[in-house]
Amino acid sequence: MKILISGSNGNIGSYLTTSLSDEHQIYSFSKSDFDVTNKSQICDVICKTTPDIILHTAAITDVDYCESNESLAYSTNTLGTLNIASMCYKFNIPIVYISTSYVYGDYKSSPYVETDICDPINIYGKTKLEGENLIRTLLNNFFIIRTSWIIDANKCSILKMLDNPSPIVLCSLEKTNVTSIKDLSYFINTIIKTDNYGIYNLSSEDYSSKYDIVTHLLKNKRFDKNILKLPEKLLVNTAKRPSFSAINSTKAKDTFSIPLRRLDDIILEL
């Protein structure tokens, strides 16, 4: 299968470029060659590569940066997705769109399912949800994958925390689960061989607080590093985070007969 991947210099895009290349013909592009805000460039690249499917991973994913750069966030995450979706419509190409659990918002205390109302509380979540809505309006052949806290890749936020000499500062309240990028790659490689289009959550089976997740990881990796556990009201100049953002991935598990791993199993292999 010929697969075009946007955002090849990002965490997810770079991993998928490598992990899927053994089985598929990959055309992977960074912003310099495939700027999602440049519709004519997108059209030229798609016409030259004639992909069977597009994996759209290009996005601004820094939640705080999105909050303070709203126009740029919408331009990249929303309008950029519109440009990709328009080309998919024009050339009848299925799309895989990587979304986020932050599209749901902050109104439940149990894991969100795909049919729950989406009411995001920060700019990042809003721009990604608008991208989803545009895809759903224009296309029938789409996979929207809502991920949780992405870990298990060289550029993931948790490993960046470990590499940074500064103490780790985490909100004491936020509970979530994680999405292993290895599991995400396996899931994508499974679903693109089917026509079971739709929206799917993908995460670990269980959830915990971000503080406990990172503490467990530090213990497992034997890192001597301080974690500052702060209440949300003391985290100034940052975007709002939901106090509970865990997602339920039963639909993905049942539809594609894939196993869902627990947090402990994912952390142990890091």
Rank of each mutant, 00 (worst) to 15 (best):
T147Y: 09
C171S: 04
N237C: 13
N248W: 10
D52P: 00
Y211D: 05
L217G: 01
R241V: 10
G80K: 04
D62V: 12
K48T: 07
N201I: 08
Y89G: 01
R261E: 09
S68M: 10
D62Q: 13
K128L: 12
C47P: 01
L202D: 03
K31G: 00
S166R: 13
T18M: 10
I267N: 14
T78K: 12
I42S: 09
T100I: 12
T37A: 07
L129V: 01
I46H: 03
N220K: 13
Y197I: 04
I192G: 01
Y27S: 09
F244H: 11
E174H: 06
D35H: 07
E67I: 00
I158M: 09
D106N: 13
Y207K: 09
L234F: 09
S109P: 05
I181G: 06
N83G: 11
E114K: 13
I93M: 03
A73S: 11
V103D: 08
I95Q: 03
V63K: 00
Q25T: 06
N9Q: 12
F142H: 05
L134W: 11
P120L: 01
F223T: 08
V36N: 02
I42Y: 13
E232M: 10
S19V: 01
P51L: 03
S19F: 04
N140Q: 01
S172I: 08
K155E: 14
D64N: 14
N92S: 08
I144C: 05
L79V: 07
N164W: 12
T179H: 05
Y207C: 08
L218W: 13
P94L: 03
S257M: 03
L184N: 07
E205W: 04
D195E: 07
D206C: 08
M87Y: 09
D35T: 06
T147E: 08
P120G: 02
K175F: 04
L134C: 15
L234K: 13
I192V: 02
D22A: 15
Y97S: 13
N38L: 06
S68I: 13
Y200N: 08
K108E: 11
K126N: 06
I46E: 04
D152M: 08
S101A: 14
S204C: 11
Q25Y: 11
L173W: 03
I247G: 05
L134F: 12
N140T: 10
Y102Q: 13
I158S: 06
N164R: 07
L234Y: 12
C88M: 03
C47M: 13
R222D: 07
T37W: 07
K175D: 06
N11P: 00
S245R: 11
F91P: 01
I95N: 03
S245G: 13
I3R: 06
S148Y: 01
K128W: 14
L134V: 15
I168Q: 03
K233E: 14
N189P: 02
S208C: 09
T115A: 04
V214D: 00
S208R: 06
Q41A: 15
S185M: 00
